[in-house]
Simulated scan of single mutants.
Amino acid sequence: MDVRNIYCVGRNYLKHAEELGNKAPESPMLFSKPTHAFAHGAKKTLYFPVDRGAVHYEAELVIRFKSEWYEGASLDELIDGVAVGIDFTLREEQDKLKELRYPWLLSKGFRDSAAVGPFYSFEKGKWEDTSFELLKNGGVKQQGSPKNMIFDLEKLTAFAGKHLGLGQGDLLFTGTPEGVGPAVDGDVFKLTYNGQEAGTFQISMKK
């Protein structure tokens, strides 16, 4: 299935909002990435810019939609896959854009900045018990679960569907827990989904 739109949810875990000095939003905060930011695979090298400041990792659960959203649609009707992904951010560039009150696109939409591991079948009944991790060079840096989201998946889907539209091939990054930090050349990020390996990405930042 081709990727059509990539939507991302900002500040959907309270401790992550706090670690960056932000207040928790009162409604879902959405932004997007262009499709060329998408990097999908079980094992992949990601190539990042070397002259635009720090690149930060943000591990997230990623939802894939199989059909068009409509009012009252169930999650099982709409969603066919879930994966663990990383929303990479040019943090210094983002801070400058926020200070100027400009959109975040330049700090979020660079190539390979939406890294996503293999997709698994989505089952709504098991969603709340899902757990995921990000390991950097073998050490656990992030751990998360939908139980700790500020806005649950039903609310995120309804909000995005109503305001932006959702359809086959759309992806939704559902927010990152605390523990984000910088990536440097040579770093290896391993993702886990319910305790099983769910994608490995190596970083290349060479000129």
Rank of each mutant, 00 (worst) to 15 (best):
G167V: 07
D185I: 00
F38G: 00
K43R: 12
V116A: 01
K206C: 11
D170H: 09
G144S: 04
T35H: 02
I203R: 03
K162C: 11
D87V: 04
D152T: 11
K126Y: 11
R64Q: 10
A54C: 10
V82A: 06
K44A: 05
F88R: 09
L20T: 10
E197Q: 03
Y13V: 00
A54H: 14
D129K: 05
D185W: 04
E19R: 06
L46R: 10
G181R: 07
G72N: 12
T157E: 02
L30V: 13
K155V: 14
S107A: 15
D187Y: 02
M205G: 12
I63S: 02
H40K: 12
G85K: 01
F119D: 02
V9F: 03
G10S: 07
A115S: 06
A183W: 15
L172A: 13
N5K: 11
G138S: 06
F119I: 02
C8W: 03
D95Q: 15
F201E: 00
H16F: 05
L75C: 08
L166H: 01
G125H: 14
A42L: 15
G53M: 02
R101Y: 11
V140T: 12
G186Q: 03
H163Q: 15
S32W: 15
G199R: 01
K207D: 13
Y7N: 03
Y102R: 11
I86K: 12
D76A: 00
E133N: 13
P34D: 10
G139L: 14
F122I: 01
Y57Q: 14
T130K: 14
G117T: 02
S67F: 01
K23N: 04
F132V: 15
Q196V: 08
F31V: 06
S27L: 08
N148W: 05
F119C: 11
G117A: 09
G144Q: 08
K108Q: 08
Y120G: 07
E60F: 09
P146K: 11
H40Y: 09
E178P: 09
K207N: 14
W127P: 10
S67R: 02
F189E: 10
R4P: 03
A37W: 05
V62C: 03
G10H: 03
D112P: 01
F201T: 00
N137H: 02
S145M: 05
K15H: 08
C8F: 04
D51F: 13
L20G: 00
F173S: 05
V3W: 06
E133D: 10
T89E: 11
V55T: 02
K141H: 12
G175Q: 04
L171V: 13
R64L: 07
L166Q: 05
Q143W: 13
D170G: 08
K98H: 09
S145F: 07
D80K: 03
E133Q: 13
I86G: 06
K141E: 15
I79C: 03
D76P: 04
E128N: 13
E71D: 13
I150T: 08
T89Y: 06
G165P: 09
A183N: 15
